[in-house]
Amino acid sequence: MVKEMKVCITSMSDNLEASIDPHFGRCRYFVIADPDSMEFESFENAGSSGPGGAGVQAAQQMINRGVTALITGSVGPNAFSLLSAEGVEVLMAAEGSVAEAVSAYRTGSLKKLEAPNSPGKK
């Protein structure tokens, strides 16, 4: 069976027209879209204002929801180690709208993040 594609974009708001929120752990919303049908769901990031470990919490959410690829601007070391251990692809996009990010994903023009690019927070 082909695994269903679920792409998560960190977002400023809860819809496809919203701008990308570049910080993974502290982003406001997550938008999870199916790149083929453009069907999507969104939810608030509960960890956006919590104390520490926001990246771990956000990564756990991705894993729980079976996300296959994450599109965001920056990921800290803890979150990155979880995402890569689970085989979630991390792709870079720091600007533009969520919909634009999904189309860029479809054309394969997003750059893959190979290592954490934010210092994270203790």
Binding site: G47, G50, P51, G52, G53, A54, V56, Q57, A59, Q60, I63, L82, A85, E86
Partner: peptide, 8 residues
């Protein structure tokens, strides 16, 4: 403290 995560 979000010190734990569970992977598959």
């Amino acid at each position: 403290y979000n010190a734990l995560a569970v992977l598959s």
